[in-house]
Design a binder for these strands. Sequence first.
DNA 1: TGGACGATCCCCT
DNA 2: GGGGATCGTCCAT
Length: 217
Amino acid sequence: MKKLPHSFYLRPTLQVARDLLGKYFVRTLNGKRLVGKIVEVEAYCEGDPASHSYRGRTKRNDAMFWNGGHLYVYFTYGMHFCANVVTGPEGKGEAVLIRGVEPIEGMERMIKNRNPRGTGAEMTGNVENEAKGGNGESGKRRRGDLGNLTNGPAKFCQAFGIGREENGVDLLGDEIYIADGGRISASIISTSTRIGINSGKKRKWRFFVKGNGWLSR
DNA sequence: TGGACGATCCCCT
DNA sequence: GGGGATCGTCCAT
């Protein structure tokens, strides 16, 4: 897999957002490689009231203003992390939020990361124990567990072990990077308004692969 | 110094 | 489909 060059991230943010679809997000965690195909993103641009960068540079959003090709990770709702790909030149404050990926490699590790229950030295992560009731009606939930692995910005972060430590990571490094993938034909790329925001509602800056099974919501 | 509010997720109805 | 969990950040006193 070929790592995307720095120039990829320096192009206009909406273009980067669209082109990130189909690319591979690669993270090496404790010697294990985790790979996910990006299938859903949202763009946040300069002058956009919904963007963290809108009200200027602060300690929290500083990485969003860095040179394109870095990771901007923020903490929200008191319990979740979300990861963005910083775009454009230093000082611009634009980024693309990764909202959904399709697991390609290291799925077992992702499942473990998403089930903090196995915190001990316990190796056998019993997914079945997740179902509290254990009734005959829990089949729906089990299927949901897998489908809910990486289909949302915070779920993706949890599955890939992304948190505070990863804020500002250089995507041209070896620990976390994005690699070229198969080309996604324009005909299966859809756009919509962004999710979970109050301002800037009109902008259709959410891009996703139509019909993919790993979309949020 | 305090309070309001999230680029969310999960569980329950 | 709705609400609770949960806490860092920012802005207004």
